[in-house]
């Protein structure tokens, strides 16, 4: 399978099936950071060290068991900057990896698994699941880790755990993240109080598009901060407990807004739908805000005949890289806004 397949579909097949609590949780991701014993870390690596990492992975590939999905390797140097940008927009690679000529990404055809090679750590394996599914995502990531470990010696310390390039990941090397759509909390202005509360319990919250409480489209990612001293199970349990509370607060906020604002909320949602259906030029920020409103409208039952899945796909296809890849040429900001409006018009007609 060529890289084109991954670039022409905005929504990963792995995320198409609705997951648990998917009215609030868009997706779950587990990322494990691992390094190969005896190979210098990112900042001290030579070209041949980078090749050794790719080789080690390719060797493991020859012994892949049946319960690990087939994985296809793409070297960064073979991918154009635009292709890399699209992979970043789909969250399959990090902006960091985008800059690494010696790096590579390994993908399963349904995009449930993405392994980054020669990023900040030699191996960063990621598993994505729809909705809230921390244990499912961890189970698969740990299984892949077990498989790789059969042929690769990880840099591991008896007391400190997995040795990572940066001390913020030392220990489990695990970053668990839950991507949440919180338009209710944003609209009710309760998000400002919630963010610092979540940060106090060792988790981080950030806007996926834009920063802080100004997150565009109301999309936030909640992740664990601590990787040392707690087991993977404890980290996931803590995160899940907080995420569950946020889900409840979001649902309550939506219901409260519906009751207190009534027709004003309905009006706002339909105005957003109207804008997406008829506008001739839309900035990324405005498009995300309007899409967020419309998605809320679908969940509150105001809008019928539009699926959440279709809207989630649009979330990605209006990003600058994706628009330009689809257009087959580079577009300046003005041209992108027009292409974005056209795409939304056609999709929501």
């Amino acid at each position: 399978m060529g890289i084109e397949t991954f670039l022409t579909r905005p929504l990963a097949p792995a995320l198409e099936r609705g997951g648990r609590d998917d009215d609030v949780v868009m997706s779950t991701r587990i990322r494990l950071a691992r390094n190969i014993d005896g190979v210098p870390f990112e900042l001290k690596m030579s070209d041949s060290d980078q090749k050794a990492v790719l080789k080690a992975f390719e060797h493991a590939q020859t012994r892949r068991p049946n319960d690990v999905p087939e994985l296809i390797l793409f070297r960064m140097r073979d991918l154009s900057p635009l292709v890399r940008a699209v992979l970043v927009e789909k969250h399959l690679i990090s902006p960091d990896l985008m800059e690494k000529e010696g790096g590579a990404v390994v993908l399963s055809d349904d995009e449930m698994v993405s392994v980054m090679l020669n990023e900040e750590d030699h191996v960063r394996l990621q598993v994505f699941r729809p909705g809230l599914d921390l244990s499912g995502a961890y189970a698969l990531s740990s299984r892949i880790d077990d498989w790789l470990e059969e042929t690769i010696d990880w840099a591991f310390d008896e007391t400190l755990g997995y040795k990572t390039s940066c001390p913020t990941n030392t220990g489990t090397g695990m970053r668990a993240s839950v991507m949440m759509h919180l338009p209710g909390l944003v609209m009710a202005k309760r998000i400002q109080a919630l963010i610092p509360a979540i940060q106090k319990v060792g988790l981080t919250v950030r806007g996926v598009y834009g920063e802080g409480s100004e997150a565009e489209g109301g999309v936030f990612q909640i992740s664990n901060q601590v990787t040392l001293g707690l087991s993977e199970g404890e980290i996931l349990e803590n995160l899940e407990g907080i995420v569950r509370q946020v889900i409840e607060h979001e649902r309550m906020s939506r219901e409260m807004l519906k009751q207190s604002l009534g027709v004003a909320l309905e009006d706002r949602i339909f105005r957003s739908l109207g804008t997406l259906r008829y506008a001739r030029s839309l900035s990324s920020k405005e498009a995300l805000t309007r899409l967020s409103d419309v998605l809320l409208g679908v969940y509150l039952g105001y809008i019928e005949g539009l699926s959440a899945k279709k809207l989630s796909a649009l979330w990605v296809s209006i990003r600058p890289g994706f628009l330009q890849y689809t257009a087959g040429k580079s577009l300046d900001a003005g041209a992108r806004d027009m292409a974005r409006a056209r795409l939304l018009r056609e999709a929501l007609r």
């Binding site: 400190l160 997995y162 220990g171 489990t172 695990m174 990787t227 040392l228």
Partner: peptide, 20 residues
Amino acid sequence: PIFRRLHGSEAHTGKVPRRG
């Protein structure tokens, strides 16, 4: 002190490589 400050701990209690 760096690990204490960052993670509130200095000791890994999670997964161990099987061969390790």
